[in-house]
């Protein structure tokens, strides 16, 4: 009762917004939705992205594609490694956020996410050697095949707020694609915090764009968007929604990845990278 006892300090809460083109805007729709902890306590109001936000994110990703795909593989690798460094620096914050979202052994998850980024960082200047080929054609021609990024990839992230998220973003961008990611609907907060990591890792704005909100709303918009080249439906658990998205993707022949349920701790293999690569073959005559 004593007046001399100081009142407990009121925490300054973070506003969780979207991440589009390197900036953190609110949803243009003004919509938000409450996010609760695994125990049901209120954590924050996350932005509920609209169709307009999704389209803005696609244009930001398209705008960033030329520069990012044209950057050297070494440069992209350096930036992915930088993301790992930034994530390591914020380890405690992520452990706390994941614990609130109900993730068990949150420390191990953060460690695995950091290691995953380092693993993919190293692939930037190796995947071309592994996925390309020098082709011995029957004629006087030089002939070589190299992988190139597909373009703008829409990624529906799994409900695995950090390790799953990093495991779907890194393979898409390491080869030069840009992406629009729809975060876990249940636990979107770590993905916005990851966006803060991305924003401070020398990753050009627009390479990764993060939307939060209703997967059921946003996924079909992206799957039908004519300037999206590929969709990763990893996070679409609902069979009907997945089929809707696949059908919409057919309109401009998007590449579709719909993998079986993943063990995020297992060796990822090359599949997530090669699914969003095109093979370009160049011919030239030989002669004097």
């Amino acid at each position: 009762m004593s007046k001399t006892e100081a009142a407990a300090r009121l925490a300054v809460r973070k506003t969780y917004k979207l991440y589009i083109g390197g900036a953190f805007p609110r949803s243009e729709s003004g919509r938000s939705y409450p996010v609760t902890s695994s125990k049901g306590e209120f954590l924050a109001n996350a932005s509920k992205a609209s169709r307009k936000d999704a389209r803005d994110a696609v244009s930001a990703a398209r705008k960033a594609f030329g520069g990012w795909s044209g950057a050297t593989a070494y440069n992209r690798g350096q930036i992915l490694y930088r993301i790992a460094e930034m994530l390591e620096g914020r380890r405690a914050q992520f452990v706390a956020e994941l614990a609130e979202a109900g993730t068990k052994k949150a420390g191990d998850v953060v460690d695995a996410a950091i290691d995953r980024l380092v693993w993919y960082a190293g692939w930037s200047d190796k995947i071309t050697s592994v996925a390309g080929a020098a082709n011995p054609v029957a004629g006087p021609y030089f002939n070589i095949s190299s992988p190139e990024p597909t373009g703008v990839v829409a990624v529906i992230a799994p409900d695995e707020p950090l390790l799953g998220l990093v495991s779907v973003i890194a393979p898409v961008i390491v080869t030069g694609n840009t992406c629009v990611v729809v975060a876990s609907e249940r636990a979107p907060l770590p993905s916005i915090t990851l966006a803060e990591v991305l924003a401070t890792s020398d990753l050009p704005g627009g390479v990764v764009n993060v939307l939060t909100g209703s997967v059921k709303e946003i996924a079909p918009w992206l799957a039908a968007h004519m300037d999206v080249n590929a969709v990763d439906l990893t996070g679409v658990a609902d069979e009907d929604l997945a089929i809707t998205c696949e059908q919409a993707a057919a309109e401009n022949l998007k590449r579709v990845l719909r993998p079986a349920a993943a063990d995020w701790y297992a060796d990822p293999g090359l599949k997530r990278m090669t699914a969003f690569l095109e093979t370009k073959t160049v011919w030239h005559p030989t002669g004097v």
Binding site: V137, N143, S145, T279, T281, W283
Partner: peptide, 15 residues
């Protein structure tokens, strides 16, 4: 496929 100083060349070894 990009054909440089040639065009419409095909080969089973070439994707």
């Amino acid at each position: 496929v990009v054909w440089a100083n040639t065009f419409n060349k095909f080969d089973p070894a070439s994707p």
